Amino acid sequence: MTLAEEDAALVAAAREAAARAYVPYSGFHVGAAVRAEDGRVFAAANVENASYGLSLCGETNAVMAAALAGARRLTHVAVVGYRAAEPEGSAMAMPCGRCRQIINEFAGPQARVIVSDVSGDEVLATTLGALLPHAFGPERL
Protein backbone atom coordinates (compact mmCIF):
# COMPACT_ATOMS: atom_id res chain seq x y z
CA MET A 1 0.00 0.00 0.00
CA THR A 2 1.33 3.40 -0.92
CA LEU A 3 0.61 6.00 1.72
CA ALA A 4 -0.14 9.65 1.10
CA GLU A 5 2.79 11.91 1.97
CA GLU A 6 1.05 13.17 5.12
CA ASP A 7 0.36 9.60 6.34
CA ALA A 8 3.90 8.47 5.47
CA ALA A 9 5.33 11.33 7.57
CA LEU A 10 3.19 10.25 10.53
CA VAL A 11 4.37 6.64 10.17
CA ALA A 12 7.98 7.90 10.01
CA ALA A 13 7.44 9.82 13.27
CA ALA A 14 6.07 6.64 14.88
CA ARG A 15 9.06 4.64 13.59
CA GLU A 16 11.48 7.22 15.05
CA ALA A 17 9.66 7.13 18.38
CA ALA A 18 9.82 3.31 18.46
CA ALA A 19 13.60 3.50 18.33
CA ARG A 20 13.51 5.37 21.67
CA ALA A 21 11.31 2.82 23.47
CA TYR A 22 12.37 1.61 26.92
CA VAL A 23 11.84 -2.15 26.59
CA PRO A 24 14.38 -4.04 28.74
CA TYR A 25 11.93 -6.91 29.45
CA SER A 26 10.06 -7.67 26.23
CA GLY A 27 12.44 -6.18 23.69
CA PHE A 28 9.33 -5.16 21.72
CA HIS A 29 9.48 -1.56 20.52
CA VAL A 30 6.26 0.32 19.79
CA GLY A 31 6.16 3.88 18.56
CA ALA A 32 3.06 5.92 17.96
CA ALA A 33 2.39 9.32 16.45
CA VAL A 34 -0.90 11.18 16.61
CA ARG A 35 -2.02 14.19 14.61
CA ALA A 36 -4.25 16.74 16.28
CA GLU A 37 -7.01 18.54 14.45
CA ASP A 38 -4.81 21.66 14.32
CA GLY A 39 -2.03 19.71 12.55
CA ARG A 40 0.37 19.27 15.47
CA VAL A 41 2.02 15.85 15.73
CA PHE A 42 2.90 14.12 18.99
CA ALA A 43 5.03 10.99 19.04
CA ALA A 44 5.96 8.64 21.87
CA ALA A 45 7.06 5.08 22.57
CA ASN A 46 6.25 2.34 25.01
CA VAL A 47 7.91 2.42 28.43
CA GLU A 48 8.14 -0.83 30.37
CA ASN A 49 8.35 -1.33 34.10
CA ALA A 50 9.63 -4.25 36.17
CA SER A 51 6.08 -4.45 37.51
CA TYR A 52 4.70 -5.35 34.08
CA GLY A 53 1.20 -4.02 34.70
CA LEU A 54 2.64 -0.52 35.12
CA SER A 55 4.12 -0.46 31.63
CA LEU A 56 2.67 2.10 29.24
CA CYS A 57 2.00 1.60 25.55
CA GLY A 58 3.34 3.94 22.90
CA GLU A 59 -0.17 4.87 21.79
CA THR A 60 -1.18 5.84 25.32
CA ASN A 61 1.94 7.95 25.77
CA ALA A 62 1.41 9.75 22.44
CA VAL A 63 -2.24 10.52 23.22
CA MET A 64 -1.33 11.76 26.70
CA ALA A 65 1.41 14.00 25.27
CA ALA A 66 -1.16 15.51 22.92
CA ALA A 67 -3.70 15.97 25.70
CA LEU A 68 -1.14 17.63 27.98
CA ALA A 69 -0.25 20.03 25.15
CA GLY A 70 -3.90 21.05 24.91
CA ALA A 71 -4.94 18.97 21.89
CA ARG A 72 -8.51 17.80 22.36
CA ARG A 73 -9.27 16.27 18.97
CA LEU A 74 -7.11 13.75 17.12
CA THR A 75 -7.61 12.95 13.45
CA HIS A 76 -4.83 10.41 12.76
CA VAL A 77 -2.89 7.74 14.65
CA ALA A 78 0.13 5.82 13.34
CA VAL A 79 1.68 2.81 15.08
CA VAL A 80 4.92 0.97 14.32
CA GLY A 81 6.19 -1.99 16.32
CA TYR A 82 9.06 -4.45 16.11
CA ARG A 83 11.16 -6.91 18.08
CA ALA A 84 14.62 -5.50 18.85
CA ALA A 85 16.23 -8.88 18.16
CA GLU A 86 14.68 -9.26 14.70
CA PRO A 87 13.19 -5.99 13.46
CA GLU A 88 12.90 -7.13 9.86
CA GLY A 89 10.86 -10.20 10.85
CA SER A 90 8.41 -8.33 13.03
CA ALA A 91 4.73 -8.12 12.28
CA MET A 92 2.46 -5.14 12.71
CA ALA A 93 1.62 -4.15 16.29
CA MET A 94 -2.10 -3.45 16.50
CA PRO A 95 -3.23 -1.12 19.29
CA CYS A 96 -4.44 -3.08 22.30
CA GLY A 97 -7.99 -2.66 23.62
CA ARG A 98 -6.92 -0.22 26.32
CA CYS A 99 -5.15 1.96 23.76
CA ARG A 100 -8.13 1.87 21.42
CA GLN A 101 -10.32 3.14 24.25
CA ILE A 102 -7.82 5.89 25.15
CA ILE A 103 -7.62 6.97 21.51
CA ASN A 104 -11.42 7.03 21.40
CA GLU A 105 -11.50 9.65 24.16
CA PHE A 106 -9.84 12.14 21.80
CA ALA A 107 -10.74 10.82 18.33
CA GLY A 108 -14.02 9.95 16.71
CA PRO A 109 -14.84 6.77 14.82
CA GLN A 110 -13.70 8.34 11.53
CA ALA A 111 -10.15 8.99 12.81
CA ARG A 112 -7.61 7.38 10.50
CA VAL A 113 -5.46 4.65 12.06
CA ILE A 114 -2.35 3.47 10.21
CA VAL A 115 -0.43 0.44 11.47
CA SER A 116 2.85 -0.49 9.83
CA ASP A 117 5.65 -2.96 10.26
CA VAL A 118 9.05 -1.34 10.72
CA SER A 119 10.03 -1.67 7.05
CA GLY A 120 6.79 -0.17 5.77
CA ASP A 121 6.17 -3.23 3.60
CA GLU A 122 3.07 -4.26 5.53
CA VAL A 123 0.57 -1.47 6.22
CA LEU A 124 -3.03 -1.40 7.36
CA ALA A 125 -4.98 1.84 7.06
CA THR A 126 -8.40 1.82 8.68
CA THR A 127 -10.57 3.86 11.02
CA LEU A 128 -10.93 3.85 14.77
CA GLY A 129 -14.58 2.88 14.30
CA ALA A 130 -13.50 -0.29 12.49
CA LEU A 131 -11.02 -1.13 15.26
CA LEU A 132 -13.38 -0.28 18.11
CA PRO A 133 -17.01 -0.72 17.04
CA HIS A 134 -19.69 0.31 19.54
CA ALA A 135 -17.14 2.25 21.58
CA PHE A 136 -17.86 3.57 25.03
CA GLY A 137 -17.28 7.31 25.23
CA PRO A 138 -18.35 10.50 26.94
CA GLU A 139 -21.57 10.62 24.91
CA ARG A 140 -22.72 7.45 26.71
CA LEU A 141 -22.37 8.91 30.20
Rank of each mutant, 00 (worst) to 15 (best):
E5A: 15
E6N: 09
L10C: 02
A13K: 01
A13C: 07
A13M: 06
A17L: 09
A18M: 07
A18T: 09
A19Y: 04
V23D: 13
F28C: 09
A33E: 01
V34Q: 02
R40P: 01
V41H: 00
V41S: 01
A43D: 00
A43N: 05
S51P: 02
G53H: 10
G53V: 14
S55Y: 04
C57V: 04
T60V: 11
A65G: 08
A66L: 03
R72N: 14
H76M: 06
V77E: 00
V79T: 11
G81L: 03
A84E: 15
A85F: 08
A85E: 13
E86W: 07
G89Y: 09
M92V: 15
A93I: 04
A93D: 04
A93Q: 06
P95D: 07
P95W: 08
G97T: 12
R98T: 13
C99G: 08
R100I: 11
Q101Y: 01
E105M: 13
F106T: 06
G108F: 07
I114P: 00
S116M: 07
D117Q: 00
S119T: 15
G120H: 06
D121R: 15
L124K: 13
T127E: 04
L128I: 11
G129A: 14
A130H: 11
A130F: 07
A130P: 00
P133N: 08
P133F: 08
G137N: 14
G137T: 13
G137I: 09
G137K: 11
P138G: 09
E139L: 12
R140Q: 15
